[in-house]
Amino acid sequence: MEKDPIIEVKQLRAGYNGNTILEQVSFGVLKGEVFVIMGGSGCGKTTLFKHLVGLIKPVSGSIIIDGDDIAHGDETLLRKVLRKIGVLYQSAALFNSMTIAENIALPIREYTDLSEKSIDTLVKMKLTLVNLDGYENYLPSEISGGMKKRAGLARAMALNPEILFFDEPSAGLDPVASNELDNLIIQLNKNLGTTMVIVTHELRSVCHIAHRAILLDKNKKGILVDGDPRYLRDHSTDPMVKAFFNGRS
């Protein structure tokens, strides 16, 4: 794993309508790392996620992705950074009017000069990679939740971005489907060296896939702890960290 930080968040302050949700949040994500953002409901996980993918601008602070500060940059800079990232949303956010193949082909068609035949082959390769071969002509409404997630992942990695963001990837999946998705994340990280940033509170999944994790806290409005989730689970002495990992209030 290379050691350069690909994402750096510095003194981030985030909130809506004058209410501060997060303050003084600083952390870095190394290149090729599987990084997890954890926390209970309402602690600001989704808020932080939306800031990292450029959907919301922070009140103050910086979010530097591969050297570009999206918190202070203009629209052009944001567009440039967005080319380097892929996002898998909680609901997969597939376009319901398009088939699975059309969903995946959309960014490839937009950003490359490949011929239609090549795009067709590439889409099939991507679908095979996520074990969805043969489902090219299905509409999102015709496949299961787990399959939607995998199709969403295939679309997120359509252009093989350097960073993949996942919002609650295991939400709504059965343990087997969730485990399959986790294994897929590990494989992609290992084989393509993609940096993964995952927002979740599925502890089993966190301990399975994460190299490093941060735990957000609602009262602190920031990071409670930062480290290897397996170490935190087994050795942390902080009562709140212990409570989170043991599922007790």
Binding site: T121, M125, T128, L129, L192
Partner: peptide
């Protein structure tokens, strides 16, 4: 080879 493997696994009928 892992990446190439995904192409080899494409079923002929899906093409």
């Amino acid at each position: 080879l892992y990446v190439l493997h995904s192409e080899n696994r494409i079923r002929p009928n899906s093409l």
